[in-house]
Design a protein around this nucleic acid. Structure first.
Length: 758
DNA sequence: CTAGGGTTAG
């Protein structure tokens, strides 16, 4: 960006017609050369400007620029010249001190005043409160002889806003005793300070008092009472107050809808909205934010689109508070094009709007777009917030892009934009999925009070890496901490067991879920258990569990069994699993390919050919197997037999040098893409050029000897390549980490962390 | 000094 003519380091200069002032930049007091008025003030000989307006104005200008030393100095100059600081200037100075939190400057200015009028004393009081010094405020308050209802209101609100309820209500009763009729704003700020269920009793007393004094019938006070009950979790009371309100504006409806949202009653929100429309209440942009939020949660696209139509009619599309939740609605309903269009209609998108868009990109798998948007926002100095960073960490998890991830992490630290728990858990997951459990656990250890989700993230991380001992250690620590595991935690725990073949432990955890932890097992947990048995080769047990459980098996149940059947070469059960899987999900390529492989391995050529033909007829193709790695932030992607890489020669030379002979190759999945006549063992030579091998060879060539080679793969690693990696880790004495579609494998000295149970 | 409400994340 071009430097502006008034960058702070420049000495003051005159504005000439040649200076370009960027139109997009708002007026900035810092750009007004203050010496213009300063020189004038000091050069004026006699008499000064009529009422000292220029001087008073200059004083304000200095204060708005935060130049308080000059403010004090200039006041002195004015004193010497006999020019008075006007009352309205004092008022503005107090306001500015309050906004900027300049407590000591505010004190200095306040101390100049002798017998200020009441309203100005109120301003000083407000200034002390805004600067956060309730002690200064209270001292002044106690000293004040004439206290108006505003005076009381300022002091009481200050206590109430800061949650100092005892002092707030103490003053409130003094106020009543003093016989000063309190104004509504006092009531409202007191009601607003009652934020949770522990305040319900005092809230009821307030309500009672307001009924007695008759103030409860005021629309704003009524709304505040209603919202107080919502915050205290007494929805029923809120509804009664609401129903009895004579005048119900959109605000009141919105407040109650918030209550229904928090009580997970989204359908009631929509019903309330319908009623509102029928009663002809004038709608505003805020009603739509909460209503659209309900639609998004319900993923109700039909109603959502209707409401969108209404919004267009009312011309509210361009409002941030409407456009932003509209973006989220379409994201949640998987209509990304509509989301983007809604975003483009927003007039002045704020950070919330941007975070809705960025999280939309991330949730819909458009991760590259997600990072691009964040980066452009950053260079344009756009408003970033913790939500945006949380989505970015999530996107980097999906991409397994540790470079962008770590950069964003550093950036978020610098800006103080890591959201407690949300951002922190996302970081744990990000580092886990990028293969770095060391960082993941370090981030986790910095979380001051991990909740269920944070604990689950670290447990799942270790589970995913096949480090069951650590996963289970964290699970025990979680219980010591008092956080309660939920269903997702148990998926992580059981996954840890399945990747380390801890059969007895898994059985135990599954059994104790309900009895010890009060978490009802779902089909997901049973699928984990089926996976435990299947990976361990206990295929009969897995099959019996499928038939014996209280759930109807889903596609995942059969897929776990089928994968186990392939790994342990069980054709009989494999056929059953495949058949059931394809019945539930006829387009699942795994259902064909794994059975195909099984048939070939059992030399059932005709059956294999039939499966292949069926797949062709359905136009189903095996996803192209692909592996990648990063070197110095640069991606290197390989497919089978790839010769596009500039270092192809060296890569193939390295493969030859490694000289690994597949003793008993059994992966024929590639054949599925070939002509039927090609189901021939000779095709096995392609194994030598599987994508992960190319990536490993390249990784060995281009990374320092002491660092592990980290490879990512879109599909599960085949057994031959798994053996290959073990071999390399031993002959090259390098640690190799492969993340396939189901987990991490850490290869060291010829062994894999998965213990060959993958 | 004239009040009350909303939208984004693991």
């Amino acid at each position: 960006m071009a430097s502006t003519p008034f960058s702070p380091s420049n000495s003051p200069r005159l504005i000439t017609g040649q200076d370009k002032i960027l139109p997009a930049r708002p007026a900035d007091f810092g750009q007004i050369p203050s010496w213009v008025s300063l020189n004038r003030a000091s050069s004026v000989k006699s008499p000064p400007t009529q009422h000292g307006q220029v001087e008073n104005l200059h004083l304000l200008s200095l204060s708005r620029q935060g130049k308080f030393e000059q403010v004090h100095e200039f006041i002195k100059t004015m004193d010497e010249a006999g020019i008075a600081v006007s009352l309205s200037t004092y008022k503005s100075l107090f306001e500015t001190c309050g906004e900027m939190g300049r407590l000591s400057d505010g004190r200095l200015i306040r101390d100049r005043l002798r017998n200020p009028p009441g309203f100005l004393e109120d301003c000083a009081l407000q200034m002390y409160c805004d600067c956060g010094s309730l002690s200064d405020a209270r001292r002044l308050f106690d000293k004040m002889r004439e206290k108006s209802s505003f005076t009381w209101g300022i002091m009481i609100s200050a206590y109430a806003q800061r949650g100092v309820l005892d002092k707030a209500f103490q003053l409130f009763s003094l106020l009543i005793d003093a016989g000063v009729g309190p104004n509504f704003s006092v009531y409202i700020s007191l009601l607003r300070s009652l934020m949770d269920s522990s305040c319900l009793e005092i809230g009821r007393q307030m309500h009672c008092h307001l009924i007695k004094t008759g103030s409860g019938s005021n629309a704003s006070v009524g709304t505040a009472i209603c919202n107080m009950y919502v915050k205290c979790g007494w929805l029923w009371g809120a509804r009664i107050v609401f129903d009895q309100m004579a005048e119900k504006k959109a605000v009141a409806w919105t407040g109650l809808m918030v209550g229904y949202t928090e009580a997970n009653m989204r359908n009631d929100v929509l019903q309330l909205f319908e009623k509102m429309v029928k009663e002809g209440v004038e709608l505003d942009e805020f009603v739509f934010s909460i209503v659209l939020k309900a639609c998004a949660w319900l993923e109700d696209l039909r109603v959502g689109r209707q409401i969108h139509g209404y919004i267009v009619k009312l011309g509210l599309e361009s409002e941030v508070s409407v456009g932003t939740p509209l973006v989220d609605l379409y994201v949640k309903c998987a209509c990304f094009e509509s989301a983007l269009m809604a975003f483009q209609k927003i007039n002045n998108p704020n950070d919330v709007s941007w975070s809705a868009l960025i999280s939309g990109y991330s949730q819909s798998g458009r991760v590259e777009e997600c990072l691009k948007t964040y980066k452009s926002l950053r260079v344009r100095d756009g408003a970033l917030n913790p939500f945006i960073y949380t989505s970015i960490f999530q996107a980097c998890s999906t991409l397994a892009d540790i470079n962008s991830g770590a950069q964003a992490h550093a950036d978020a630290i610098k800006r103080g934009l890591i959201s407690p728990l949300y951002g922190e858990s996302a970081l744990v997951t990000m580092y886990s999925k990028c293969g770095d459990m060391d960082y993941a656990s370090r981030v986790f250890s910095l979380i001051s009070e991990p909740d269920t989700i944070a604990w689950t993230a670290i447990i799942a991380g270790y589970a995913y890496h096949g480090i069951a001992s650590e996963a289970l250690r964290y699970f025990r620590k979680m219980q010591d901490s008092g956080a309660r595991p939920n269903g997702v935690t148990f998926v992580a725990v059981l996954t840890a067991c399945s990747h380390s073949s801890l059969i007895t432990e898994a059985k135990c955890y599954l059994k104790s879920m309900n009895s010890e932890y009060g978490v009802a097992p779902t089909i997901d947990h049973f699928n984990c258990m089926i996976d435990v048995y299947s990976r361990a080769g206990l295929l009969q047990e897995a099959f019996e569990l499928i038939n014996g459980m209280n759930f109807d098996p889903d596609a995942m149940s059969w897929k776990c069994l089928l994968a186990g059947c392939w790994n342990h070469r069980n054709l009989k059960l494999g056929r059953i699993a495949s058949e059931n899987l394809l019945q539930l999900n006829p387009d699942d390529t795994a259902g064909y390919i794994l059975l195909f492989n099984l048939c070939v391995s059992h030399e059932k050529w005709e059956e294999a050919a039939r499966i292949r033909k069926k797949m062709m007829e359905k136009n189903l193709r095996k996803e192209v197997s692909c592996s990648w790695t990063t070197v110095k932030g640069q991606w290197h992607r390989f497919i089978v037999g790839d010769r596009h890489h500039p270092q192809t020669k060296e890569i193939y030379a390295k493969l030859k040098e490694i000289d690994f002979r597949d003793s008993n190759s059994e992966d024929w999945s590639l054949l599925i893409e070939e002509d039927a006549s090609c189901i021939l063992p000779e095709r096995r030579h392609q194994l030598l050029e599987h994508s992960e091998r190319l990536a490993i060879a390249f990784g060995l060539l281009s990374s320092p000897r002491n660092s592990p080679v980290l490879i990512f793969k879109n599909l599960r690693a085949c057994r031959d390549c798994h053996d290959f990696a073990k071999h390399v880790s031993s002959v090259a004495e390098r640690e190799i980490i492969i993340r396939d579609s189901s987990r991490f494998h850490h290869f060291k000295l010829g062994q894999c962390s998965c213990g060959d149970h993958w």
